[in-house]
């Protein structure tokens, strides 16, 4: 019987590799550094060679902060990070002095500002296919399911981490992305003096090969790492659910 158990384990490992929920060798997954979250992800982190979507709130910087914090965990030896900003009406754009506070060195970024969505998707696909980039970020792009599939294939070919910061829409269409997160700002500890550490509500909406989840995080701006938010007692019931 033990032979069967071993065979089944091996087959499962093979299947999950085929399914891309675990890396097929190559680069290790990118852990968030929060054990509760990494434990909920089948590979123990965000799989490189895949697309991960982050849904930010409206007029809210939490999604960008979360992405910057993840990118800051990529070792510098992995290479540069391409940040492709979708064209759009005059709206808030990434501000380099601000992301430096989330452990992401702005000098690592290659920023691209294409004129059209078509160009932006082309840039993303080319970037994801390139093996010399640590990650490629699509900021404000909402790919159609077909386009998302193309990006996913490109990321698999290049073994590059693809992060899509979707435009803040209530219900984005389904996609083949590895994971989809919603990150929103949350009120911080009212006992703190002035404004405390940045606090976010992070929802794992879907995850290939895994379940959903919900965490309250805070950004430790001294140790430059994500932590589970401290005492939950003061939080309204809705946020803790």
């Amino acid at each position: 019987m033990t032979d069967h158990a071993a065979a089944i384990t091996a087959l499962r490992a093979q299947l999950s590799a085929l399914d891309r929920t675990r890396p097929m060798g190559g680069r290790p997954p990118v852990a968030t550094g929060v054990p509760a979250i990494d434990g909920a992800l089948p590979a123990g982190g965000l799989v490189c060679g895949g697309i991960h979507e982050v849904l930010p709130g409206r007029h809210c910087g939490a999604g960008h902060g979360f992405v910057a914090a993840l990118l800051g965990r990529l070792p510098e030896s992995d290479g540069r990070i391409l940040w492709c900003r979708a064209p759009g009406p005059a709206n808030a754009a990434l501000y380099a002095p601000g992301i430096a506070g989330f452990g992401l060195l702005p000098g690592r970024l290659l920023q691209v500002y294409p004129r059209t969505d078509e160009d932006a998707l082309w840039v993303m696909e080319e970037a994801l296919r390139c093996r010399r980039l640590a990650a490629a970020v699509g900021d404000g792009l909402l790919p159609s399911p077909t386009q998302c599939r193309r990006l996913q294939l490109a990321a698999e070919a290049g073994d590059t981490l693809g992060l899509m910061l979707l435009p803040p829409t209530a219900r984005p269409p389904p996609s083949v992305a590895m994971t989809r997160w919603r990150v929103a700002a949350a009120p911080d500890d009212p006992a703190s003096d002035g404004l405390g550490r940045p606090c976010w509500t992070v929802d794992l909406l879907r995850c290939r090969g895994g379940g959903a989840g919900n965490w309250d995080l805070e950004w430790d701006d001294e140790a430059l790492r994500l932590d589970l938010a401290g005492p939950l007692a003061h939080r309204p019931v809705a946020a803790a659910e």
Binding site: G61, H64, A93, A96
Partner: peptide
């Protein structure tokens, strides 16, 4: 890039 005061991520 070090700054004395916090800066926003989006401007």
């Amino acid at each position: 890039w070090a700054s004395d005061a916090p800066r926003p991520v989006l401007l």
